[in-house]
């Protein structure tokens, strides 16, 4: 009996969570559509502040991780390719890997850890301090006031961070190949030949999608913060875990679509 009780409670909690996410998504969509009619309602100042924190403050960590990613990819792939004397193709490999997949993916994971958790903690603290109730009773929808500027900031920050991480990764690859006696000029010529416009735009499109997911998941976790001692901490954890899971899911779906459409 206890087993059924426990299972029932878990299913109920799961359903409530799903219902909560769905209504949050509906409310956010409604507000975005409303914004198309009244663009003046968008809080540009709040979005600029969130963008500054998400994008510019995140540049050093994204650059650092991107650089290390380039270095690691180069060393790992060079070991295999050197056996055939074609280590120059390391440049092609890291270009494709960074622009198509790893650049947006790793940057999004960093954004989920830095900004997704920050969004959840900020909004969660505001909820605990009754600031969300204050907005509601003033007739200001918290989604318009708090969620939309942050989601917009995450969407806009991702391409910038991704490009920065990708360039840093290429610099890391160039340094490693230089150490393997591949001249820098040759490396960059291969990069330019491999990176076509579609590949770059596809990667940036993915980055925007991941930014949207990180923003939505982070803000949703914040809005559902429980008024308990560990409520804000739990919300921040949920934002990071949920953000990474949603990014991985979306990336998997995109990989299948790319394969099916031969992109």
């Amino acid at each position: 009996m206890a087993l059924f009780d426990s299972m029932g409670r878990r299913w109920l909690a799961l359903f409530k969570g799903f219902h909560g996410n769905l209504s949050f998504l509906g409310e956010t969509t409604k507000e975005w559509l409303g914004m198309l009619v009244h663009p003046g309602r968008f809080r540009f100042g709040d979005a600029a502040l969130a963008f500054e924190r998400a994008a510019f403050d995140g540049l050093p960590i994204c650059g650092g991780i991107g650089f290390l990613l380039g270095v690691i990819l180069s060393f790992q792939s060079a070991a295999a390719l050197q056996q055939f004397g074609v280590e120059i193709y390391v440049s092609d490999l890291i270009t494709i890997g960074l622009f198509r997949e790893l650049g947006p993916l790793v940057t999004a994971i960093i954004l989920a850890g830095r900004s997704g958790s920050a969004f959840a903690a900020e909004i969660g603290t505001m909820k605990v301090d009754e600031e969300l109730d204050a907005l509601t009773t003033m007739g200001l929808p918290p989604v318009r006031f708090l969620v939309m500027p942050r989601v917009a900031a995450a969407i806009l920050a991702m391409p910038i961070l991704t490009i920065f991480a990708e360039l840093a990764g290429l610099v890391g690859g160039a340094i490693v190949l230089e150490m393997m006696n591949v001249p820098n000029a040759v490396f960059w010529r291969h990069v330019a030949a491999t990176a076509d416009t579609f590949m770059i735009l596809f990667g940036l499109g993915k980055a925007c999608l991941f930014g949207l997911l990180v923003g939505l998941v982070g803000c949703s976790a914040g809005m559902r913060t429980q008024n308990t001692a560990d409520g804000v901490g739990r919300a921040a954890t949920a934002a990071v875990v949920g953000g990474i899971v949603s990014i991985a899911l979306a990336d998997g779906i995109l990989a299948v679509i790319c394969y099916a459409w031969n992109l």
Binding site: D129, E130, E131, D133, A134, T137, M138
Partner: peptide, 21 residues
Amino acid sequence: TRARLCRKIGVMYQSGALFGN
């Protein structure tokens, strides 16, 4: 009626609930 009623009431919350930014 929500939009109209929200303009007819004012609320002070226990903590003040001022926006920190």
